[in-house]
Every structure is written in structure tokens, then in C-alpha cells.
């Protein structure tokens, strides 16, 4: 299965990535080569095989339903927000969404 430049652009949009016009042919070529490698899988009949998501077939652990919170919530929030690009009074700032 090969991929077209238009499909690359559509996929990039889904992934919130920009592919510059000057790079599109190279990106398409490299991703096509990878998909060609991946397509070796299609030679095998797997119709009877159950997909495997977790190697130990583990189930999700459940923790006791009790409240776990740090002693000083505001201090902890401030520590987390110290590394944010833009905050104001405990809120994360982004460009205006609604005009």
C-alpha cells in the first residue's frame, strides 16, 4: 500500500503537524518505504488469530476508591504551573477560542 502526498497532508492535519510544501515529496517517499516494509505482514493469514494488546494478558488494576490529594493543593498546583508557557491565577492560558 503506497501513500499519496494528499494522504500525507490529511494525516498531518489529524496529527496537528505541518508538512512544508518543499518537504512533501521526501516525506511521502520515506513513509511509503516504511509502509512497504510494514506490508510484509499482509502475506500471513491471521484470520483465526486473536489480537494481542498486552503480553501478560493483564487486567487493569483497581485501586481503593479513596480520595488521595496532596496536603497543600495550591502549592502543588503552583509547582506544576511554574513550568507552563502561560498561566494566570491558577489557569492555563491559550489563544482566544471564542470571538
Amino acid at each position: 500500500m503506497s501513500i499519496t502526498p494528499d494522504e500525507i497532508i490529511a494525516t498531518a492535519k489529524l496529527a496537528k503537524l505541518q508538512v512544508d510544501d518543499k518537504d512533501i515529496s521526501e516525506v511521502t517517499e520515506r513513509i511509503s518505504a516504511i509502509l512497504e516494509l510494514v506490508d510484509q505482514m499482509q502475506a500471513i493469514d491471521t484470520s483465526e488469530i486473536q489480537p494481542m494488546a498486552n503480553v501478560l494478558d493483564a487486567v487493569q488494576y483497581l485501586r481503593p476508591d479513596t480520595i488521595v490529594e496532596p496536603d497543600n493543593k495550591i502549592l502543588r498546583r503552583d509547582q506544576f504551573q511554574q513550568i507552563a508557557p502561560a498561566t494566570d491565577e491558577g489557569l492555563y492560558l491559550v489563544p482566544k477560542v471564542i470571538e
Binding site: M1, V38, M41, Q42, I44, T46, I49, Q50, P51, M52, A53
Partner: peptide, 13 residues
């Protein structure tokens, strides 16, 4: 199905 599910099946093999 063609990619992700297939790969998970190969993973079991």
C-alpha cells in the same frame, strides 16, 4: 484493521 489489528495478530504469533 489492515494495520493495527493485523500487527496485534502478528504480535501474538
Amino acid at each position: 484493521d489492515a494495520y493495527y489489528r493485523k500487527a496485534q495478530q502478528i504480535r501474538r504469533l
